[in-house]
Amino acid sequence: METNVNPATSQNPRTKTRIVEGVPRRKVKWKNILTYAAFVGPALIFFLVVQIIPFLMGVYYSFTSWNGVSSVVEWVGLANYKKIFTNDDAFFNSFMFTTKFMFAAVIISNLIGFGFALLLNAALKTRNILRTVFFLPNVIGGLLLGFIWQFIFVKGFASVGAMTGIPFFQLPWLGDEKTAFWGIVIVFAWQISGYMMVIYVAALQGVDNSLLEAARIDGASNFTLVTKIIIPLILPAFTICFFLTISMAFKIFDLNLSLTGGGPFNSTQSVAINIYQEAFQYNRYGLGTAKSIIFFVVVAIFTTVQVMATKKREVEA
């Protein structure tokens, strides 16, 4: 039996699919765009207002002689940069101090943090309490921490040295250039090691214990386990920790300000303190922003080289 099909009422399934699915797809697309804008938009605006726009304004002011107060902004071109590179020994001395401090602080902080992580990764009954104790200094603000340790160095160590006669406690910790340098390193490492410990602990918990057990059965020592198996497996954690400690050490300000204030005789003055004094104490805002741009470029170079080098080691491992 032949069935009559009315062409006017017939529908092509493909056409019908396009019509039915086409409209919802456009609606879903706009819905997704609006959803992303609602979540990402405020954060993006906040980032632009707080980070990008001030940075671009700082680049502009670095080519001016603005004092930070006057409404008159005079364009001076590269004069600020020429002055920094030809006639600003204090800035380069602060750079040398900050660079030496960065290397010492990064090595010591990561060694302590990794050591704490290895200790807490073991089956200790008190490891949860120890994690809290080791991480607690990172919660304390830099200024408060600096004043606490200033009291410890000046009053506490002096009292212990007078009672025991131990030369270590009788040193002029904040009154001499060398001991003041190591005093800042000690406090920085004490503050930041707990933070590094948390990252290393998270990485160690991802290591397959069967690999370690197999290596122990083959006669590997604990030192071999750490250097040949554990460290290569958690190299991404080292990349993160090195990046964080390098950037934090370079940008040290509040701890340095509260401990020594840059003294004695500006021997422990960090770059951040030098820029702060230039811009807000001496009212040379244009010169201060020029120093900050140079500082930004140097820190970016250091961190980029470090990340590239450690990422390369990750691939090789």
Results as ranks from 00 to 15, higher is better:
236 P>I: 05
262 G>V: 10
266 N>F: 15
221 S>F: 03
257 L>Q: 14
291 K>P: 09
266 N>D: 14
255 L>H: 11
254 D>P: 09
233 L>V: 09
286 G>V: 06
225 L>S: 06
296 F>S: 13
285 Y>I: 02
270 S>D: 02
210 S>M: 12
241 C>G: 09
248 M>I: 09
209 N>Q: 14
232 P>K: 07
271 V>Q: 08
293 I>C: 13
228 K>R: 15
211 L>K: 07
211 L>P: 00
290 A>Q: 10
214 A>V: 04
266 N>E: 13
288 G>R: 01
285 Y>V: 04
244 L>N: 14
292 S>E: 05
232 P>R: 07
221 S>P: 03
273 I>P: 01
296 F>E: 02
206 G>I: 02
269 Q>D: 10
257 L>Y: 14
274 N>V: 12
275 I>S: 01
276 Y>G: 03
231 I>G: 02
215 A>F: 06
208 D>R: 01
289 T>G: 02
281 Q>M: 12
210 S>N: 14
217 I>E: 07
204 L>Y: 04
211 L>A: 03
233 L>A: 11
269 Q>H: 02
280 F>N: 05
203 A>Q: 03
253 F>A: 05
277 Q>S: 10
204 L>I: 05
242 F>C: 14
246 I>K: 08
208 D>L: 06
204 L>H: 03
287 L>W: 09
278 E>A: 13
260 T>C: 10
260 T>M: 08
231 I>R: 03
233 L>W: 04
207 V>K: 03
221 S>T: 15
247 S>L: 12
215 A>Y: 09
207 V>E: 04
237 A>L: 01
220 A>I: 01
259 L>N: 10
257 L>C: 00
261 G>A: 06
229 I>P: 11
242 F>Q: 12
223 F>K: 11
277 Q>W: 05
218 D>L: 05
297 V>L: 14
285 Y>P: 04
245 T>N: 15
205 Q>P: 09
293 I>H: 12
243 F>T: 15
291 K>G: 07
279 A>K: 00
281 Q>W: 08
269 Q>T: 13
257 L>D: 12
211 L>C: 00
275 I>N: 01
216 R>M: 13
262 G>C: 11
207 V>T: 07
263 G>V: 06
284 R>V: 00
213 E>Y: 04
241 C>R: 01
280 F>W: 12
284 R>H: 13
